[in-house]
Design a protein around this nucleic acid. Structure first.
Lengths: 216, 216
DNA sequence: CAATTTTTGAGGGTAATCCCTGATATTAGA
DNA sequence: TCTAATATCAGGGATTACCCTCAAAAATTG
């Protein structure tokens, strides 16, 4: 028997899910929550196996709830439910412990399949959600291009120096590692400060990491 | 008519694709490339609409090719093909301009569907690929948890100082902004260096950004 | 091959960081 | 309530980073 807890503030929707699951002999809805802050307690008290969790929940949103449960109630498996197919929601809640993500227009069969899949230890995502994520992946391209136009290209040697600065090395150490003079390293560092338009090494590290300058 | 160029160094595989596509009245294989460096020229000369691009290509790999084409031949739509379902390959090539990703065990129907879908301006990914990506998303969770246990908590005031360091402010500026003495800021900075176990401000920025210390 | 960019290097100086050893209120947790 | 952590501040010194100007090989690119 799979014990299911539903956390959603839309009563009609909860009723709908419950009427669907009533027909399943091996599933049982053991409770409902209408706000985020009561979820944790309910999960533990009712020994829920599966939590159907609305992402946009009043009080404490789904992502917060997820984060909390991943430390206080690791056993429960979470399927996130959302009205909208928002990329940011999906990535955020998945990296905070949810095992599945489905949309509210999901039909009866898919809901049951999702629950069974997740209960067995696998993950489940609806087609639309998968597609959204894949599209999101491709957008990185555009972003990268836009950003990289704002500051001129950083040369190969400068990248080497930058990498060592990020790695907490002093100018002297960098000079030794690259077999060049201290003054040369200072020169590179100075160019980097200019190119990336920052005031100090802290800024270099920040900009480099924000823009993945060392990736390519 | 859809003009298709195939770039793959496995001759048998190319033959297979070509024999499949020969039966399609509205598709035509206009050329083949057996290494990465010749792809760009061929795409332009043969006016290819679709490029079936092997990720692991000799000479210049698929990702490099993709990156190049996104500036020199924007019109061509790229479907990446790979033997393996490697998350890193998928994300990398997708964020460099590919419109689709399929595996080499793809059947006839799926291949044709992929080509038609991408040609119409949409993107296409095989089920296995989608699943790999989604699983990868969830892994972020584990990484985050592991890291955050290694260093002790950073106090509220220390976070304020840290934020200003990341924002490229000097100790004197931070002191003025927080209405405290320069020595106090130095004290906080020193504590941060100890707690985060780094040698200098560059390290502070790196660790802070890697672990999202300012988020909470 | 010419022009540009990159990489290399120097001198000399100012400003900022980092380290050490202290100390005293304030605050939060057990 | 008592203890531990936090936030505040100081002197002094060593090291490092940052700024300026300048310049000459070396590599890339047209």
């Amino acid at each position: 028997m799979i014990n299911i807890l539903i956390a959603d503030d839309h009563k009609m929707f909860v009723d709908g899910i419950e009427s669907i699951l009533r027909l399943e002999p091996d599933m049982k809805v053991v409770g409902r929550c209408y706000d985020g802050s009561s979820v944790e307690e309910a999960v533990i008290r009712l020994k829920a196996d599966i939590l159907l969790l609305d992402v946009n929940l009043p009080g404490m949103n789904g992502i917060e709830v997820c984060k909390k449960l991943s430390t206080t109630a690791k056993h429960v498996k979470i399927i996130a439910i959302s009205m909208f197919n928002e990329e940011s929601y999906v990535t955020e809640i998945l990296s905070n412990g949810a095992s599945g993500y489905i949309l509210k227009n999901t039909g009866r069969e898919e809901l049951i399949k999702a629950i069974k899949t997740v209960d067995s230890g696998l993950s489940y995502f609806s087609e639309e959600v998968k597609h959204t994520i894949m599209k999101g992946l491709m957008k990185n391209n555009e972003k990268k291009e836009q950003k990289s136009k704002f500051f001129p290209k950083v040369s190969k040697r400068e990248k080497e120096v930058l990498a060592l600065i990020i790695d907490e090395h002093t100018t002297q150490e960098i000079a030794s590692k690259l077999y060049i003079s201290l003054k040369t390293v200072e020169s590179h560092r100075s160019s980097l400060l200019n190119k990336l338009n920052v005031r100090n090494s802290a800024g270099l590290v920040r900009v480099a990491m924000e823009n993945n300058l060392l990736a390519e």
